[in-house]
Design a protein around this nucleic acid. Structure first.
Lengths: 155, 155, 155, 155
DNA sequence: TTTT
DNA sequence: TTTT
């Protein structure tokens, strides 16, 4: 069918760290779920209500898969632009199931980290605190151990 | 969650006429499915491929439900802007199923008919005419015979 | 600045045929203006009002420039997705002027023709009519005379 | 013209605090400019380049004007969805000038603050504390001094 | 599962 | 004028 458009724009927060799959063909696929929510005040009760919606994102676009792997993590706020695709799969009982995903294909889609760059070392945090389990750094994913990425950071 | 966005933009064609449900509460809900498609040439075989994606649209927005009911029909090309919502339902075997829909809520969403105004069967009218003064009708769907809708036509 | 988005989505009609510029560097730039409009009923007078907005589109993206050149013409309905850019230029009196355009850069943006494929030869039209100046064919741009485009048609 | 769409989506940072105008008719108009930018590496020189684009936003939508006035300030990161409008104005020399703006009309458009809730000056508070109970305040701009806004915060 |  |  000619002349159609299939576009989704989501701004939300990741529920967990992204999952990275390296295919046998040598490409990388990154998946994560991202939440949006709406709040409103119930007319009758006057209570504040909230509804959270979860969206499954699948990234085939190589460049964006790299970005996702490197910079997104649980809690990250991100802009995701992709297309809707409903995938059929088989449940264990043999029945067909359908899952709708937001897909970022090769050469298509956008992904932008919306968290503000974390300002340097939050050195104050550790002053006299125990916080034993806490990471010394809350900086973005590229850890000191995995130092690199001297190349372009796309956001 | 604050600061989130959940937006879908679809341009496609309706697979069937819309289904209209009048609720006991006096409101109207309109549903239809709309297809988008992509075509590409397969690298290996060189064949042209096509994949069609179907999207379920549910309109709660009253004004847009009216528009959908009046002007959309099987084959109509439309612009739909709404939000993603995944609804849980029970299959006959008692298991949970999920369906993702594009929802146009009250005061939210957009719906625009993209078909050109149909020059209603202009063929008969013009036989032998000079058409000097203009076509008998370039009006949208509400034909002269079914004069109706003297109010705002929202597209 | 990191984490920004600059996106425009227009559906409208071209005011004139696109203008094509072939640069000395061998690339092609296509420009056109496209109109959107809003109609509303004036509260006071009850009159129907309309406001038309014109948008200047500039296509640097090669593939989309080809599409525009081949398939768009005056009156075409199109979906355009690009980014805003404000360009400074010099008026004849030497003062600075600014013009905001919708730009489709290399590898960015989308362009989709929304006119329905015109149904073959509108043979009826010519029955006994004079319409001397009228084109015999209202078919899309690739005329029979300029036969081909055996390659991919991207919509 | 029927069936048109005029939509702009911007995510960027405000260059200054918004300007609020109270009209004689009792309505409020809020204006601000918001920057988006692109960075790329120049192929020839290998240098990193950046281009910043400034967009003028005008909010007539009352609810969103309130949000802008209350919560946006210089440096804020925001999602803005509106429509393009080119306004004509007279320069001092009497010549016509044009300015393109992103307009959020009554009942139209969206505005979402994307900054994470600021854990207001957490530094002083946490010195030597266990932070057991949580930050004293996670509220946005409305400071404790100006306690107000017991109503809905729309993001 | 996120976030507020 | 923002931001990185």
């Amino acid at each position: 069918m000619s002349g159609t458009v299939n576009k989704v724009i989501i701004i939300g927060h990741l529920g967990k760290d992204p999952e990275v799959t390296n295919t046998s063909a040598g490409s990388k696929i990154v998946r994560f779920s991202i939440a949006t929510s709406e709040t409103w005040r119930d007319k009758a009760s006057g209570e504040r209500k909230e509804r959270t919606e979860w969206h499954n994102v699948v990234i085939f676009n190589e460049g964006l898969a790299d970005v996702a792997e490197r910079y997104l993590k649980k809690g990250s706020k991100a802009y995701v632009e992709g297309q809707l695709a409903t995938r059929k799969w088989q449940a264990q009982d043999g029945t067909d199931r359908y899952s709708t995903e937001i897909v970022l294909k090769t050469f298509r889609g956008e992904l932008t980290l919306l968290d503000r760059a974390e300002r340097q070392a939050p050195s104050e945090e550790s002053y006299g605190t125990t916080r034993s389990s806490a990471p010394a750094s809350t900086s973005a994913k590229p850890s000191p151990v995995q130092p690199a990425f001297d190349d372009d950071i796309p956001f």
